[in-house]
């Protein structure tokens, strides 16, 4: 009892943690961009009345929302290379898994946002002679984005947390470095506490931002 907390070994390894942090940010950026942009495409498919777009989009969303991300990551890392003539790197597998999962979730956010724009806006724009693409670009999406910002921010927070799953395929990010430091210095307490603190410090501003956005949205409604 009474463990002596000693962070010196952790502080001695700040460069290792920095490498991990860069890895985390790297995969976060990839998955954020891919996930949210592909999510828009799928979301439009979910919103479409054309069966050719709606059914594949729905199948995609249902599948990737109802399977765990870790399963997807391991599938992309161990299973997919069997079908392909090339290997998939840890970054590739983890990015694929997290991005597709995020795309499925953000698709529903986009669909909800677009649907929440009242039909009168479509009427007003159509009566001027605007085409579908113009209406989306100039009238619907600009208004929808404001409403979707809280949910999309939450999605970004989830993506940031999901980057730790990449450690399961040995991608070099923060948690993976934490494991390394713990195993080399026999200080799992300090190592994992440090990793947890780093994540908390990074995410807390984002979480506060999402609360702020949620409050502002509710006030504007």
């Amino acid at each position: 009892m009474g463990h002596q907390w000693d962070f010196s070994s952790v502080l001695a390894n700040t460069d290792a943690l920095l490498v991990g942090a860069i890895g985390t940010l790297h995969i976060f950026a990839i998955c954020l961009v891919l996930g949210l942009s592909f999510g828009l495409v799928v979301g439009l498919g979910r919103y479409s009345r054309n069966g050719w777009f709606y059914f594949p989009a729905t199948a995609f969303v249902e599948f990737f929302r109802n399977t765990p991300v870790l399963v997807q990551i391991l599938w992309f890392y161990f299973a997919l290379p069997i079908l392909l003539p090339f290997e998939i790197s840890p970054l590739g597998a983890a990015s694929l898994g997290i991005s597709l999962n995020s795309a499925a979730f953000s698709a529903e956010i986009y669909r909800g946002g677009i649907q929440s724009i009242e039909p009168g806006q479509w009427d007003g724009a159509r009566a001027l002679g605007m085409r579908w693409g113009q209406i989306m670009r100039r009238i619907v999406l600009p208004q929808a984005i404001k409403r979707m910002l809280p949910a999309l921010t939450n999605r970004a927070i989830e993506i940031f947390k999901m980057t730790t799953l990449a450690s399961a395929v040995a991608y070099v990010e923060l948690l993976q470095q934490g494991k390394l430091i713990a195993s080399l210095n026999f200080n799992p307490i300090e190592a994992y506490t440090a990793v947890a603190v780093i994540f908390f410090v990074c995410l807390w501003p984002l979480v506060q931002l999402s609360y702020l956005l949620e409050r502002r949205l509710r006030r504007d409604e």
Partner: peptide, 15 residues
């Protein structure tokens, strides 16, 4: 629609 203008009961202005 460019040649026929419409004014709606609910205005439908772009907020």
């Amino acid at each position: 629609r460019q040649r026929v203008g419409m004014v709606f009961q609910q205005f439908n202005l772009f907020p």
